[in-house]
Structures are given as structure tokens and as C-alpha cells.
Design a protein around this nucleic acid. Sequence first.
DNA 1: TTGGGTGCAAACAGTTTGCATTTTC
DNA 2: GAAAATGCAAACTGTTTGCACCCAA
Lengths: 145, 145
Amino acid sequence: MQIGRMVYDQIDIVNKLIESINISGNSVTNSRRRIIAEIVRKEGLFTSEELAKSLPNIGRATVYRTLRLLYEQGSVCRINIVDDHSYYTLSSSDHHHHTVCKKCNKIDEINLIGLEKSIKQFEKNINSEILSHNLEIYIICSDCA
Amino acid sequence: MQIGRMVYDQIDIVNKLIESINISGNSVTNSRRRIIAEIVRKEGLFTSEELAKSLPNIGRATVYRTLRLLYEQGSVCRINIVDDHSYYTLSSSDHHHHTVCKKCNKIDEINLIGLEKSIKQFEKNINSEILSHNLEIYIICSDCA
DNA sequence: TTGGGTGCAAACAGTTTGCATTTTC
DNA sequence: GAAAATGCAAACTGTTTGCACCCAA
């Protein structure tokens, strides 16, 4: 069931993000609404550039500023993959890790349950609070092998 | 026991890296020798910029080109940390993971033994060869807490 | 109505490229 | 002597900033 190109639960996410901007004391502007809608529509990893390109009527600076705002609020998270781009995803989506094919650069999302346990264990051993973590596994994918 | 500021086993590493340039069919030049010596002297993570700065008489381009050569040869590896810089280390140094303090950006090397096991297990489950992996844990370090 | 947000253009940082000169093999 | 590497400067890419105008609260 869709409204335009957006399904109901996507609209919920959009509303939640807009609400969080409001709560944090920032203005809910038209540009921000549109940027958020676009992020939700993407449904996965995206780069700042891709986002900016799919919103040609919004200034690049505004896209970058909004992305930073969402990042600082924790609405969006950054993933670092060794190919000179920062990727973003919605924080609301489940936490997961990534495989990156060194040949074709295809990125897949995976879930290493064992890791979460190791990290919890590690947190007990050090005297610092863990905020988040980031794991990429570099592979040659089955298509490229 | 040191020669200049360099100990014997560092000299071995330098020679090994120079040799690998030779073997791969590239020329062993003076600039490359000096860049390699500097990398070995650094003994840990460094950025391209730091490296270039500590070798002011060598052109930036040469530093970047040599770093890329070493990376492509596998002599050096890139570590991605979400702070807008690419970090490098010698591949010969033990594999380890990193904690990054979100406040002061201090980076520490750690070793999550459990993770290595999870990754090995994961490799069995997927149909792809794992080349390497990258883990950063974001924390608030004890100094900043 | 006023302070934050926008959009443009200019600035910036890190990196790469073109090219004449130098070095290695 | 030919091919590869260097160093400079210019180009390029992704991102940020300054500033006049605009709009949400």
C-alpha cells in the first residue's frame, strides 16, 4: 500500500525524524522535510553526494548541514568504508555490519551476532563507555570470484 | 641499539619493503627509500598528511604516489576511522582493532580476540573469501569521561 | 518580527594529474 | 638511452563557510 512512492511505515519514520528535529529545538523547514523524505525513500546506504543529487532544488550546503544535524542527533549514522566516501543510513534500521567486495565495491549488510557479545565483554574490561562500533569485512564476492 | 634514530629490526623492515618494491618491478629511488624509512620510524598509525609533512623535501605527490604503491602491494594497510582521515599502518604489524574517543579523537589499538573467531566462523557460512576486516569501537575515553 | 535556515558562490582540505626535468635500470 | 619517477603547479572532489535574503515560530 503506497502513497506516492512511499509506504505507510516510511511515513511514520519521516514523521518521527521531523519530530526529533522539532524536539531538539531546531526549525522544521520545507527543505529539511524533503531531505528526510528522500533519506527514508532510499532505504539503505547512501552518500551525501547521492542525496544532494537527488534533491537538485535544494542547495548542497543545506543538504550537508541537514545531514550533519541528523547525524548529531543520532537519527542517522555514518559508516566508513575504505573507498573514500562516507556512507549514511537511518539509525532506526537495525544495527548491522557490512561486507565490501574489493573488486566490484558492492556493499552488503550482514549481522555478526558473535561480535555483539565480544564487544559487550570488552566494555566490561575497559574503563570507558562504548557508544557504537563499526565493522566492515572485505571480501571477494561470489560474483567476482 | 640504534643507528641514527633507527633500531636494527626497523632496518630489516625497511629493507624488506624496499625489496618488495624491487620485486614488483618498480624502481627503488631515493625518495621511496626515505618515505619507507619514515613510515617505519612512525611505528603506528599515521595519515598521508603527517607523512608528507615530516618529509618536506619530497613533493606531496610523490608521497601520495608511493603510499598508494605500498598500499597496492599490500605493504601498508588503510584503516578507516570516522573522522575524515585515512590512517595507514605497516601491514607487517600485528592486526588489531581500534578504539576512537568521540570527544578527543584519541585512537588506541586493541585486540578483540573473540572477534577473530566470529569472523572465521562467518567465513565458513558465506561463499566468499574474506580478505581483511576493520573494526572501530567508539568510546568516551577515561580522560574525557 | 526576529533569529534560525537557505542558497548561492567562494573558500577550503586532501588528493590527483599534466608535464618538463631528473633518475634508475 | 629508454622508461620510470619526481616535483611543481594546476586541477579536482567533497565539504564547509560567509553573507544577503527568506521563512518558521
